[in-house]
Design a protein around this nucleic acid. Sequence first.
DNA 1: CATGAATGAGCGTTCATTCAT
DNA 2: GATGAATGAACGCTCATTCAT
Lengths: 212, 212, 212, 212
Amino acid sequence: MNRPEPDPALRATTRTRIQSRNREIIVQAALEVFSTYGFRGTTLDQIAAKAGMSKPNLLYYFPRKEGIYVAVLEETLTEWLEPLTRLDEAGDPVDEIRKYIVLKLELSRRNPAASRLFANEILHGAPSIGGFLTGPLRALVDEKSAIISRWIAEGRLAPVDPRHLIITIWAVTQHYADFDVQVRAVLGSEAEPIPDAEATILSIFLNGLRPR
Amino acid sequence: MNRPEPDPALRATTRTRIQSRNREIIVQAALEVFSTYGFRGTTLDQIAAKAGMSKPNLLYYFPRKEGIYVAVLEETLTEWLEPLTRLDEAGDPVDEIRKYIVLKLELSRRNPAASRLFANEILHGAPSIGGFLTGPLRALVDEKSAIISRWIAEGRLAPVDPRHLIITIWAVTQHYADFDVQVRAVLGSEAEPIPDAEATILSIFLNGLRPR
Amino acid sequence: MNRPEPDPALRATTRTRIQSRNREIIVQAALEVFSTYGFRGTTLDQIAAKAGMSKPNLLYYFPRKEGIYVAVLEETLTEWLEPLTRLDEAGDPVDEIRKYIVLKLELSRRNPAASRLFANEILHGAPSIGGFLTGPLRALVDEKSAIISRWIAEGRLAPVDPRHLIITIWAVTQHYADFDVQVRAVLGSEAEPIPDAEATILSIFLNGLRPR
Amino acid sequence: MNRPEPDPALRATTRTRIQSRNREIIVQAALEVFSTYGFRGTTLDQIAAKAGMSKPNLLYYFPRKEGIYVAVLEETLTEWLEPLTRLDEAGDPVDEIRKYIVLKLELSRRNPAASRLFANEILHGAPSIGGFLTGPLRALVDEKSAIISRWIAEGRLAPVDPRHLIITIWAVTQHYADFDVQVRAVLGSEAEPIPDAEATILSIFLNGLRPR
DNA sequence: CATGAATGAGCGTTCATTCAT
DNA sequence: GATGAATGAACGCTCATTCAT
């Protein structure tokens, strides 16, 4: 008895499904490796091993190393951007800032690898995501800065440069992911650093930004 | 009259001077390259080209790539540490914090490569300076944290975790060196970002830390 | 009619066959080069050229130069050891010695490269096969020495130190492989030296060992 | 008070004396290193270190590595040849052979490095001393072979090929220098192997060669 | 005589990528 | 889809040799 030929359309679907699945596996594996060793420090062998497939098969899905890297970055960027998009003009300014800081710290705790990947890329001059920075990112920052400016004009927030406020929040929140090893070395305790960090950051920023 | 034999000590000094001079040139060149491309991303050819000498001659002064890297790190660490050592218990607490922030920002502007080198190293897990972090760095942070704690106990500073305060200041000040390309992309102006950043950071931190 | 899927086991066998085949080719090429130039004097380029493949492909089969060398040595040692294992207590002592000398000389003629490889290794202090010498080799010599001792005790062989007898036979037989170029220079004839050598060696050793 | 200029002739003499002295030191150091690591395995740094001088200074005396090697070989060859030159037609044949074996073994014990250097060179195809082998060495062997042939013709020695007899004596005597590490591994005792070896070798050879 | 400094050529090894199946 | 085999280009490093003093 012959096994029936699978329906061609179904087969295509199947292929696509496997395709997607494997691309996801690769991207996930690559995130871990790239974030730890950087682009040049990462080898395809490492990614292939972590993804549980052969190197040529890896290159079947992403013909170049750079392609994997870009795919990982793209996924990371979306997640990275998300908290800022939520900053809501209709909310209470100080409370919105508070929520933003909390969300960013949560992200740093939940996905430090993504933060480090991003840090690495920018540290090296953003060779692969320069366009994202001057495009979508800048546009979003412009939009949210306008909101903050209006809050300040209404006297509901202390007068600061809104762009530098956003940058500063990035700095303090991502630092706990990117410089984790230094943070833990300096604190010298086994405890998770971020809860204490949150209290300190919120105290400084919310007091510092409350209008007087 | 006989020409005197050249003083052997002087001759030795001359030799040493060439040695020192070239080592300095190499360390300077290596700082630029390592800070941009990371340890693995940097090739000896790049350093040699930037230092204006052949690769084997480079290795005449530093027999291994890692040796160059460590030499660069050592020089960087000293400079990096210096501002915090100046934090003076006898001074006015808020003013001391202000001076510390200003010094760190100045350092980020004057020597961003050093900051980036350090960032790279920690991002990759501090393989070469783990001992420095848990040793001298932690000791210094412990010492200065005690000062800040006393200031808080005396009601001269808002109550925050002193270690996280220090870490947070590191975060915001170094960010302008390490993430410079992102900062400029987002600000979208040709102007030097740090002066505006300084105003914003000081405003937030000093207001946030002033006792009420 | 459907073309049958190739049997997976067969395919695996095929792959293995290519692997084995190339490993054999490499070991054979490496034997020739290592035996002529020694370990340090041999370059991977030489082996690759002789094996008819690229240097990285060579390293695909043997990731390190030392690995190739060890593989060659292992194959050589087995062959080298074999004649002595045949020394049979049940045989006639003088005839057994005669057969041993003949076998060793035959080996020297048939595979002088193997002998030279071994000579090189020991000459340089046996860095890679020290364990073989003090382990399996010594054990075999102990075992066969006991046989020779019994022959001597029974008066069937002239009284000599059995270990030095074995070593001496090694010396005279391998010499014709290892020092071939000197032997031919001194003899100055085009003829194959070993047949004449055999007559001389057998004459001396068998007369020298016959009990009187 | 001025130190008088040294007499020019004297100075020249002095130079020559230092020259010779340093060349000797270099050759002695080089013998040890070359005999252990072979020609390609030896670095000028090793020789310079062992000779206690700088590498450029080494090359002042011997402008090329090969020059040092040849100088070492030349000195070695003279010593190596000497015992055979003493084989005296006027002596008792068996006793002359005995004395020759004893002298060669003594040389192997006293200067194994020289023996190993020579072994290495021949093993690698005698690239530097081919001329010596086909020239002076072959001539000496021819001369002494003639003596042995006459002894045999007179019935004072068992009939063997005289050239192969000489080669065989070289083999067994030098083996104890060249393969020392194997000999010791197989014997497994701390004792100096050569005395026992001498008894065995003399027993076999003298019995084997005695006319009957 | 002596040496610190410098270098071209080459070595063992790695790695992204390609080929063939 | 998947993989064993293959390779060009580079990389860190070594080494005999040269240069300059």
